[in-house]
């Protein structure tokens, strides 16, 4: 995986729709019709009850910071995207995602409410979800 520029997602048949929806500005999660679990990462079987009766669900794109860490330098990472803020964001729908916060680390704390944005990826029908503090 190259970090120059940002990493490109690995697109598989199971995740293609997730990435193309992101390119269209929509964050998708998966929902199990049998047990009701909403989950990430997207896969064809519910990770709890293993039902294959699962659907795509449009997430609101809102969430809160569950944890975060900031780093001032990251070899290979685009200079203009530093400092790099890593975060686990808990989506309103329940699942957590590992993501980046596009903001000054000083403006973040655990519990900060955030909204999704999408970073375009070159040469692929995909975009990477990142988050910014809610206005």
């Amino acid at each position: 995986m190259s970090w120059e520029p940002r990493p490109t997602p690995e697109i598989t048949p199971e995740t293609e729709r997730y990435w193309s929806a992101a390119a269209d500005g929509t964050l998708l999660v998966r929902e199990c019709t049998d047990c009701g679990l909403v989950y990430h990462y997207p896969r064809a079987l519910c990770p709890d009850c293993f039902s294959d009766d699962v659907e795509w669900k449009e997430a609101s794109g809102e969430g809160t910071v569950y944890s975060y860490s900031a780093t001032q330098s990251m070899s290979g990472w685009p200079e203009e995207d530093l400092p790099l803020v890593l975060a686990y964001v808990e989506l309103e729908e329940g699942p957590r995602v590992m993501t980046n916060l596009e903001c000054d680390p000083e403006d973040v704390e655990i519990g900060t409410r955030v909204t999704v944005r999408f970073k375009a990826v070159e040469d692929a029908d995909a975009a990477v979800p990142v988050f910014v503090p809610r206005e």
Binding site: M1, R6, P7, P9, W77, L86, N100
Partner: peptide, 10 residues
């Protein structure tokens, strides 16, 4: 987690 976590530069 190479598919979903490293994507963020983790």
């Amino acid at each position: 987690e190479t598919e979903w976590e490293r994507l963020s530069g983790t």
